[in-house]
C-alpha cells in the first residue's frame, strides 16, 4: 500500500497507469467516502516477550496542512487491546463509536468481558470487508495490539479493503517504508520478538517515531505510545520526541537557495 492515504484504495499506478483524479470531482453530494480528507499518518507496533508496544503521533493533517495537533489515534478496548488508526480521521471516529458500543454490549452478562485483541481484530476486519464490498469503505489502516486467548502477544493489521495480516512488527503508511526495516532488523521473526524485553521494544518504537518525524512531512513530534500485556494497558498520550539531532540537515545539499 502507498504511504499516502490518498493513494489507498486506488488501482495501482504501476499496474494500471496513473489514476485520473478528475473523476473525484462531481457536483452532487457524496454519499460514500471516496477519498480521505483529514488524515493521520503512520502507526508503528512491535511485539516483545510479554506483550506489544504501539505508537502513533497526535497529528491530523488536511492535505499538507497540519490541521489538528492533539488528535489521539490510539484507542483502548476493555483493558484488553489497543487499536492504532491510520488514514481518515472521521472514519476513525466512526469506528471509535462502533467499538464503544461493542464494548458496552460485551460488558453485559454475568461473566463480563470475553473479547480479546484477536477477537477484536477479526471483528474489525469484517467491518472493513463488509464496507468495501458495499463500495462504501472506511478509509483506514488499523493495527490491533494486545494478547490472545492464550495470553500470548497479538499484533495484526486490517485495512479499508478488508486485507488482514499479522507479523512480529507492523507499521502503516510511511512507517511501512521507514520504520518496518528498523523493526525487522530487531525482530526478524516471532522467536526474536519473544526474546525482546519491554524496554528494548519501547526504545525501538521511540526510535522509529523519531525517524518518521525526521522524514515524514505529515508527522509530528508529539505522540501517543501504549504498552499492552496480559496485565493491562499502559497508555501515554502526550509524549514528546527526545534527543533529536538536526545536524544532518546542514549537510543536505541541492535544495532551496544554496547552490552547493
Amino acid at each position: 500500500m502507498n504511504h499516502l492515504p490518498q493513494g489507498w484504495g486506488r488501482p495501482r499506478d504501476d499496474v494500471y497507469g496513473a489514476y485520473d483524479a478528475s473523476y473525484l470531482q462531481n457536483s452532487g453530494p457524496n454519499q460514500h467516502t471516496q477519498q480521505p480528507v483529514v488524515t493521520g499518518t503512520s502507526v508503528v507496533a512491535l511485539k516483545f516477550k510479554e506483550g506489544v508496544v504501539i505508537a502513533a503521533d497526535n497529528l491530523a493533517s488536511y492535505g499538507s496542512l497540519a490541521r489538528f495537533t492533539d488528535v489521539k489515534r490510539l484507542r483502548t478496548f476493555a483493558d484488553a487491546a489497543v487499536v492504532g488508526f491510520g488514514g481518515d480521521v472521521s472514519d476513525m471516529q466512526y469506528l471509535d463509536r462502533l467499538l464503544t458500543s461493542l464494548d458496552t454490549e460485551e460488558a453485559y452478562g454475568t461473566t463480563g468481558h470475553t473479547l480479546n485483541a484477536h477477537n477484536l481484530h477479526t471483528y474489525l476486519s469484517k467491518v472493513f470487508y463488509k464496507r468495501r464490498s458495499e463500495f462504501n469503505p472506511l478509509w483506514n489502516q488499523v493495527l490491533v495490539a494486545g494478547v490472545d486467548q492464550e495470553k500470548k502477544p497479538f499484533l495484526a493489521s486490517a485495512d479499508l479493503l478488508g486485507t488482514t495480516f499479522s507479523a512480529p512488527s507492523l507499521a502503516t503508511g510511511f512507517g511501512a517504508h521507514l520504520a518496518q526495516p528498523i523493526l525487522r532488523t530487531l525482530a526478524p521473526d516471532e522467536e526474536a520478538a519473544a526474546g525482546l524485553s519491554k524496554e528494548q521494544a519501547v526504545e525501538a518504537i521511540k526510535e522509529c517515531m523519531k525517524v518518521l518525524f525526521y522524514r515524514d512531512a505529515r508527522s509530528m513530534d508529539k505522540y501517543s505510545i501504549a504498552v499492552v500485556t496480559k496485565d493491562g494497558i499502559d497508555l501515554r498520550e502526550n509524549e514528546k520526541l527526545e534527543a533529536q539531532s538536526w545536524a544532518f540537515a546542514e549537510k543536505i545539499r541541492g535544495y532551496g537557495t544554496q547552490v552547493n
Binding site: 486506488r10 488501482p11 499496474v15 494500471y16 497507469g17 485520473d20 468495501r132 463500495f135 479493503l161
Partner: peptide, 24 residues
Amino acid sequence: SFNQTPTAAAAGNKEHAFYPYTDN
C-alpha cells in the same frame, strides 16, 4: 504483475473512484 503497465490511458468513463481490489 509488474510488467503489465498499460501504455495508454484507459478509454471510457470510470464508474467509481474506489477500487475494491488489490493483489497480495
